[in-house]
Computed example of a mutant assay.
Amino acid sequence: MGDKAARREVRGMKHLVTVGVDGSPESRAAAVWGAKEASLREVPLRLVHVIDWPISPAVPRLDCDTAGRWADEALAAALEDVRRRHPHLEITTRYLSGRPAAALAVEAAGADLLVLGSRSLGSLLGFLVGTVGTATLVATETPVTLVRVADVPEDADPNRYGEMIVGVDIHEAPDKVLAFAFEEAARRSCALRAIHSWKLPRAYRSFPNVDPDNEREAGRSVAKMLDELLEPWRRKFPSVNVDQVALMGPAGPHLVQASADADLVVVGRHLRRSPLGAHLGPVAHAVLHHAAAPVAVVAHS
């Protein structure tokens, strides 16, 4: 099966990229990134502004008309920036009233991808993921990408794409995560590095002096499992140059380190809910807060 046929197979029936905008530099960067993504996918772009209504009593003078003007200004600024860069892209705008996370999650349900802006904590610290971003991530099954201003440099070559990173757990069923990552890499004609992190079984870790031969054998076994997991995706996407690596230790730090040279990092999160509600999981949480590249979070069972 060729790459185009594979992309049609995994894309499904939704054909839209949605971006949440609020007038901030971060959300405008998200709009630019999302427009580039929509252009790659050859689908329309939708820019959405959510008016947090009812307005807090702490802002008594902010009435519906004022909030509406703010929405219009935020959408107009993002629209102008995007159209300047992508004059032929189909773009729609809309604004909604309600709690932002809930409204964005509803909008995401009708899209292939939701893109949100996030503040940067610096090149070594990654993202400042606020309550809206976190709540939206766990409220939708649609893939969500977080983007910072630094991720959209003005002088970047719009047709050049660097390496992508995908975190893979060979003990799960990561089909949705791998489908997203391979499809993105095929669109960009860029290399994909699949990273799996592993630990020695608890029985081995209880002994202070583990035989190095056992550790090496375990590493070879994990690498073989990773290779077997990726093989069907290599056949489905023959144009994607895939590099795989199995590293001992926690997944989060390995993915964060690899993100320094990447254009996009793809991680999964479980749809399972804890007694306290849905959550991102430790790997996605670590990558979101420390990665040096845009991060796509893909929900899976």
Rank of each mutant, 00 (worst) to 15 (best):
residue 59 V to K: 04
residue 24 S to T: 14
residue 33 W to S: 01
residue 55 I to E: 13
residue 20 G to E: 00
residue 41 R to S: 03
residue 52 D to N: 07
residue 54 P to T: 10
residue 48 V to E: 14
residue 46 R to D: 04
residue 57 P to Q: 00
residue 58 A to E: 05
residue 46 R to S: 11
residue 60 P to V: 00
residue 23 G to T: 11
residue 56 S to D: 11
residue 59 V to T: 05
residue 46 R to P: 02
residue 44 P to S: 14
residue 50 V to Y: 15
residue 42 E to T: 04
residue 35 A to I: 04
residue 49 H to Q: 14
residue 38 A to D: 01
residue 27 S to H: 03
residue 47 L to P: 08
residue 44 P to Q: 09
residue 21 V to P: 04
residue 25 P to W: 05
residue 44 P to I: 05
residue 53 W to A: 15
residue 46 R to E: 12
residue 57 P to V: 04
residue 33 W to I: 01
residue 33 W to K: 02
residue 60 P to I: 00
residue 57 P to D: 00
residue 42 E to N: 15
residue 51 I to N: 06
residue 49 H to D: 06
residue 36 K to H: 09
residue 25 P to L: 03
residue 57 P to W: 01
residue 35 A to E: 02
residue 23 G to N: 11
residue 40 L to E: 12
residue 27 S to I: 05
residue 43 V to H: 09
residue 35 A to Y: 08
residue 61 R to H: 10
residue 42 E to K: 11
residue 19 V to M: 10
residue 31 A to K: 15
residue 41 R to W: 11
residue 22 D to V: 12
residue 36 K to Q: 12
residue 63 D to S: 15
residue 37 E to T: 09
residue 50 V to C: 10
residue 37 E to K: 12
residue 31 A to Q: 15
residue 33 W to P: 15
residue 25 P to F: 01
residue 58 A to Q: 10
residue 31 A to S: 11
residue 21 V to H: 09
residue 62 L to P: 14
residue 25 P to A: 02
residue 37 E to H: 13
residue 43 V to N: 02
residue 61 R to N: 13
residue 24 S to C: 09
residue 35 A to S: 09
residue 23 G to Y: 08
residue 39 S to V: 03
residue 51 I to V: 15
residue 59 V to Q: 10
residue 52 D to V: 13
residue 59 V to E: 08
residue 32 V to N: 02
residue 58 A to F: 06
residue 32 V to D: 03
residue 51 I to T: 10
residue 54 P to E: 11
residue 20 G to P: 01
residue 25 P to R: 08
residue 57 P to K: 02
residue 30 A to R: 05
residue 38 A to K: 04
residue 49 H to L: 08
residue 62 L to R: 11
residue 49 H to A: 15
residue 33 W to M: 01
residue 55 I to W: 14
residue 29 A to K: 05
residue 59 V to H: 06
residue 34 G to T: 01
residue 24 S to E: 09
residue 44 P to K: 13
residue 24 S to K: 07
residue 58 A to C: 06
residue 63 D to L: 06
residue 52 D to C: 02
residue 34 G to Q: 01
residue 56 S to P: 15
residue 28 R to T: 15
residue 34 G to P: 02
residue 51 I to D: 03
residue 45 L to F: 09
residue 25 P to D: 07
residue 19 V to E: 01
residue 40 L to C: 03
residue 41 R to M: 13
residue 60 P to S: 00
residue 46 R to T: 11
residue 31 A to Y: 06
residue 23 G to C: 06
residue 55 I to L: 14
residue 30 A to T: 04
residue 31 A to L: 08
residue 29 A to C: 08
residue 56 S to M: 10
residue 29 A to G: 05
residue 38 A to M: 01
